[in-house]
């Protein structure tokens, strides 16, 4: 994968993490997933790699996930945006700090593309911060998707990737998890009147 694509994916990840509107975040997320799929399609088959096959599956996943997220947004429209979310600047700063920490903590990969490794770790950190800090539940789901995209970038950047069965299985599993998470969105809205994770704090000891 070219450095430009990797860092563009990281910028899109940061954008997904800081925007307020769910529809804008879904668009950025879809673009990021699509870029990774197209980049995988552009790679040749290496030892143990199945990039063209994985590329097709990643593109299909990007389209499917974007559709599911878009469906979730349309089914859970709320009269006003979820308020009191952390300021975009604060979210961005925390994400950049987490990216720096992740890159510093994980040693360099001898055989792997350095850029892909750093880009993947950056998306891992952004995804974790997004899942932990953003209040709309759909952003927490997009945090998970960002982590998975980071893993895909590291896998595609190495000289040897995951076996094809595992790569395809990961995509299948993720699609199922996203479908289940999308069904939760409308049920959460029905029960709580909002998809704000702050409303879901009834279970405390």
């Amino acid at each position: 994968m070219s450095s430009g694509v990797v860092w563009l994916c990281v910028i899109l990840g940061l954008g997904t993490g800081v925007v307020r509107r769910r529809s804008a975040a879904v668009a950025l997320m879809a673009l990021q997933s699509l870029l990774i799929g197209l980049a995988a399609l552009g790679l040749g088959s290496g030892e143990g790699h199945a990039e063209p096959l994985a590329g097709v599956a990643l593109v299909a996943k990007a389209v499917l996930v974007a559709g599911l997220l878009g469906y979730a947004v349309s089914r859970t429209r709320q009269p006003r945006p979820i308020g009191d979310d952390a300021a975009p600047v604060l979210n961005g700063l925390v994400m950049v700090g987490a990216v720096a920490a992740a890159i510093a903590l994980i040693p360099d990969a001898g055989g792997a593309s350095r850029t892909a490794m750093h880009g993947g770790l950056a998306l891992l950190a952004i995804g974790i911060v997004m899942a932990a800090m953003r209040r709309p539940t759909l952003f927490q789901l997009m945090g998970l998707l960002t982590i998975e995209n980071g893993v895909a970038i590291v896998a595609l950047g190495g000289e040897r990737g995951l076996p094809a069965v595992v790569e395809l299985g990961v995509i299948f599993d993720l699609a199922i998890v996203v479908a289940v998470a999308v069904t939760f969105q409308s049920r959460i809205l029905g029960a709580f009147g909002t998809t704000d994770a702050e409303a879901m704090r009834g279970l405390r000891d």
Binding site: L124, G143, L144, I147, E148, V151, V154, G158, G161, L162
Partner: peptide, 21 residues
């Protein structure tokens, strides 16, 4: 759903790094 999926995604990164290493 979210916590265990995020945790397993981190474990998947570990598996990828194992291959890459």
């Amino acid at each position: 759903l979210i916590l265990t999926s995020c945790g397993l995604a981190v474990a998947l990164l570990g598996i990828v790094l194992l291959v890459v290493s």
